[in-house]
């Protein structure tokens, strides 16, 4: 090319927002690492050391799940997850509906519902369990209540996002043809969201199943109480046996649930 030399335009600087984000992320990382007393050497030496936990992991007692008490606790866990999800998922239908504009035209009331949903969602599963254990005492009822609120929060969030994005056309059409509220919902809203809603409830079930395993750690019933029992005695073979068997089941149920969810949406 014989063309004379050309000048590139002046290179623009890196945008301030990007510099700020990078510096912010870096400082955040340094400060948080100091806060948690992060130490690579400690991690490496501790993982390298022989310990009872790892011994148990390599020698798990799979038979433990078949012992009478563990088995009943295990079934209890599954039942808690089913019931908690059905109740929480059912309730979330209403909570999501009341959080939308067409379901709840009164602005301040809608704001209250939405705030309530956000607050419920910001409390983690185990904290719910602890709160209800405090309120109603040790047992499976606090576990059920915890799973109820936890799954309600998740499913409500997902469902109301879907409701916000539905096609308003059928709703208008239903109103135009003079249908009342119930028939409008039945013909114009529910068909639009039912597949995703069902899939959200199944997703809530998967989460609840996993959460139900740890409820027992704070005294809210299920297999977690057995895990906690063996842990406090230092019987790591039994702990791992229960954990592995339980998550094998969770894994299988989840595959099944994911398959159904795929078919729905």
């Amino acid at each position: 090319m014989t063309a004379s030399k050309v000048e590139l335009p002046k290179k623009p600087g890196i945008p301030g927002a990007i510099i700020f984000s990078l510096v912010f992320a870096f400082v955040l990382t340094v400060v948080t690492m100091i806060t948690v007393e992060f130490s690579l050497t400690e991690i490496l030496t501790n993982f390298g050391r022989r310990n009872l936990v790892a011994d148990g992991l390599f020698n798990p007692d799979f038979g433990q799940i078949l012992s009478e008490r563990s088995l009943s606790a295990f079934i209890e866990t599954l039942q808690l997850a089913v019931l908690g999800t059905v109740l929480g998922g059912g309730m979330s239908m209403f909570m999501a509906y009341w959080a939308t504009e067409f379901g709840n035209p009164i602005r301040w009331l809608r704001a209250i519902v939405r705030t309530f949903n956000n607050v419920v969602r910001s409390i983690p599963d185990l904290l719910w369990a602890l709160l209800f254990v405090t309120a109603v005492g040790i047992g499976i009822l606090p576990g059920l209540l915890a799973l109820f609120f936890f799954s309600m929060a998740v499913v409500t969030k997902l469902t109301s996002d879907t409701l916000d994005g539905i096609d308003m056309g059928p709703i208008e059409a239903a109103k135009a043809s003079g249908s009342g509220l119930i028939s409008m919902l039945r013909t114009a809203v529910i068909p639009q969201i039912l597949p995703s809603y069902t899939s959200f409830v199944l997703y809530g079930f998967e989460l609840n199943l996993r959460a139900s395993a740890v409820l027992g750690l704070v005294g809210a019933g299920g297999i977690g109480s057995r895990i906690e029992f063996f842990r406090s005695r230092g019987d790591w073979s039994e702990v791992w046996g229960l954990v592995l068997m339980f998550f094998l089941v969770v894994f299988l149920v989840e595959r099944f649930s994911v398959t159904i969810r795929r078919r729905l949406v």
Binding site: E37, S39, V53
Partner: peptide, 22 residues
């Protein structure tokens, strides 16, 4: 499949009751 809390339970005997476990 495994919740963090279960992992934490397993890590406590190794790293103690510290934030590093979490």
């Amino acid at each position: 499949a495994v919740p963090e809390v279960i992992l934490a339970i397993a890590l406590i005997p190794i790293f103690g009751l510290t934030p590093l476990t979490g």
